[in-house]
């Protein structure tokens, strides 16, 4: 029941995250895999640069997962891995994996964790274009 939360500058092993949440009491494993796409608002993106305030990011991620355990008491295992550094198109930026006894809660808990992560976890994304870079969401 101890969530496995990490921020890494190495490529994310999605299979390892799925394996980390496997448990015999869960009949459902659900995962969200976020990847680097080739455009943003119609503007071609070459690559992404993620920056993390690691200690706070892990603290806030712990709060998010604790909220998920409160909302879905049947939630069994959780693993979240977020990449930092420079990512190329197609690279995996984040994996959220959860295990629950039944599937409905696995979808809900997984979506809650990734949605809330995006709101509170201290990770920043700079998009690189052909003609420059921009911090995502920085300005109104």
């Amino acid at each position: 029941m101890t969530p496995q939360l990490s921020i890494t500058d190495q490529p994310i092993d999605v299979a390892a995250a799925l394996a980390a949440v496997q448990t015999e009491v869960a009949g459902a494993v659900n995962a969200f895999v976020g990847t680097v796409r080739n455009q943003s608002g119609g503007r071609p993106v070459r690559r992404l640069h993620y920056e993390s305030y690691d200690s706070m990011a892990l603290t806030q991620l712990g709060h998010v997962v604790a909220q998920a355990y409160e909302k879905w008491p049947m939630l069994q295992e959780v693993a979240v891995v977020h990449r930092k550094g420079t990512l190329e198109l197609g690279d995996v930026a984040v994996v959220v994996a959860v295990a629950t006894p039944h599937r409905a809660e696995s979808f809900a808990a997984c979506q809650f964790i990734i949605d809330t992560l995006k709101q509170v976890v201290t990770i920043w994304k700079r998009e690189e274009y052909e003609d420059g870079t921009e911090w995502v969401a920085a300005h109104p």
Binding site: G34, Y50, S52, Y53, S55, M56, A57, H82, A93, V94, I114, L117, K118, Q119, V120, V121, T122, I123, W124, K125, W135, V136, A137, A138
Partner: peptide, 12 residues
């Protein structure tokens, strides 16, 4: 205190 400015986050 460990103090930091936190601009809009954009993980995921």
């Amino acid at each position: 205190d460990e103090i930091a400015l936190i601009p809009p986050v954009a993980g995921g």
